[in-house]
C-alpha cells in the first residue's frame, strides 16, 4: 500500500509539474505580445519598453524566468495582473468562497439527482421514467451550458417580470444578491440567487452521472450475489440499497471525483452567464482582457486541485477495492 501511495503521489506531482511547465512555455517562452498588453497596445519607446521588461522580469533568460516563476509559486505568490496590477492571491481570496459555495450546491444537486435517477432507472428498466430520463440525459449533453443558463433566465426571470408574476415566482438573473451565508447555507433571499446557477452548473454532469450509475447498477443487479440475496428472501429494498447500490457506487464516485477540471470549465460559463462573482467569471474576464498572469495563476490552482481530487479518488478506490492496487502493481 505504501509503495502504491508513493507512486501515485509522484504521478500526481509529475502531472502538476507538467501542466504548469506547459503553461509557462506557452505564455512566456513562445513570443507573444506581453509588452503590448502591458502598454495598452500603444507604440512604446525603447527605454520604457526596457523598464517594463525589467519590472516584470521579462529581461531575464528563459531559464531564469522559469526558476523565478517556480520560486514565486512555491512561496505562495501567484503573481499580479498585467492590466490593473492587482495581486492574484488577493483576487483568489475574494472570489474562491463564492465559487466554492456555488460548486457545493452544484455537486450536491448532481450527486443526489444523478445517482437517484440512475438507480431508479436501473431498477425500473424500460419504464417510462427510464426512457424519459435517458432521453433528457442525451438532450442535456447537446445543449450548451450557456444556452441552458440563458433559457432558465428567460423562462424564470425575464418572462415572469414582464408578465408581472407574483414576486415568489420570479428569480433574479444577474449577480449574487445579498451575499448572506452561513458557511454554505444561503440565508434569507440568497437561495433565489443561488438556485438557477447551481442547477445550470449541475446539469451536464447530472446526465452523465445518471447514465453511469444506471449502467453500473444494471451490471450489479445481474450479479450472482444479488441473486443470492434475493433468493435468501431479503426485502427488495434491502437488496437494492445494501447489496447492489454499495458496489454500483464505486464507478460513479470515480467519475464525480475525476471531473474537477471539467466542472471548472462549466463554472466559467455558468458564472459568466449569471454574473456570479466567482473564480470562473474572473478567469473569463481576465482571459477576455488577455491578462496572462491572472489566468495562469488561477489556472494553476485549478490544475493542482484537479490533481489532488484524482489522487484522492484513486487512493479511496484502492482502499475500497484492493483489486485495483494489485492490478496496477502487476502492470508496472
Amino acid at each position: 500500500m505504501a509503495s502504491y501511495l508513493i507512486r501515485r503521489l509522484g504521478l500526481a506531482l509529475l502531472v502538476v509539474w507538467g501542466a504548469v511547465t506547459i503553461m509557462f512555455v506557452m505564455f512566456f517562452v513562445i513570443p507573444g505580445n506581453t509588452i503590448d498588453i502591458l502598454s495598452g497596445e500603444k507604440v512604446v519607446r525603447p527605454e520604457i519598453r526596457r523598464t517594463i521588461e525589467k519590472e516584470w522580469g521579462l529581461d531575464k533568460s528563459v531559464t531564469g524566468q522559469y526558476v523565478h516563476y517556480w520560486n514565486r509559486v512555491l512561496h505562495g505568490d501567484l503573481g499580479k495582473s498585467y492590466s490593473n496590477n492587482r495581486s492574484v492571491n488577493e483576487l483568489f481570496k475574494q472570489r474562491a468562497a463564492n465559487s466554492a459555495r456555488l460548486a457545493f450546491w452544484g455537486l450536491t444537486i448532481e450527486i443526489v439527482f444523478g445517482i437517484g435517477i440512475g438507480v431508479i432507472a436501473a431498477v425500473r428498466k424500460y419504464s417510462l421514467l427510464d426512457v424519459v430520463t435517458g432521453f433528457v440525459a442525451v438532450a442535456l449533453a447537446g445543449i450548451p451550458v450557456f444556452v441552458l443558463g440563458l433559457l432558465l433566465q428567460y423562462g424564470l426571470g425575464v418572462r415572469p417580470a414582464q408578465w408581472n408574476w407574483p414576486r415568489w415566482a420570479r428569480f433574479p438573473v444577474q449577480g449574487m444578491g445579498p451575499n448572506r451565508w452561513f458557511v454554505v447555507i444561503p440565508l434569507g433571499h440568497q437561495w433565489k440567487y443561488l438556485i438557477l446557477p447551481a442547477i445550470v452548473l449541475a446539469c451536464v454532469q447530472t446526465g452523465f452521472i445518471t447514465r453511469i450509475s444506471r449502467t453500473s447498477m444494471l451490471e450489479v443487479l445481474n450479479a450472482d450475489y444479488v441473486r443470492t440475496a434475493r433468493a435468501k428472501g431479503l426485502r427488495s429494498s434491502t437488496v437494492i440499497v445494501k447489496h447492489a447500490l454499495r458496489n454500483a457506487l464505486l464507478p460513479t464516485l470515480t467519475v464525480i471525483g475525476l471531473d474537477v477540471i471539467g466542472l471548472f470549465g462549466v463554472a466559467v460559463l455558468t458564472e459568466t452567464v449569471f454574473n456570479w462573482p466567482g473564480l470562473g467569471s474572473t478567469i473569463r474576464d481576465y482571459a477576455f482582457a488577455q491578462d496572462v498572469p491572472v489566468v495562469l495563476g488561477l489556472a494553476s490552482i485549478v490544475v493542482l486541485f484537479g490533481a489532488m481530487a484524482s489522487l484522492l479518488v484513486d487512493v479511496g478506490y484502492s482502499i475500497l477495492d484492493p483489486r485495483v492496487r494489485l492490478t496496477t502493481e502487476k502492470v508496472d
Binding site: 507538467g18 506547459i22 503553461m23 505564455f27 507573444g32 470549465g265 482571459a287 489556472a299 490533481a307
Partner: peptide, 22 residues
Amino acid sequence: MRTADVFSTLPYIVVVLFFISV
C-alpha cells in the same frame, strides 16, 4: 500518452487564451 495526460488537465480557457494571444 503522458503528454496527453498532462494536456487533459489544462483548463480550456488557458489553451484558447494562448492561441488567441499569440
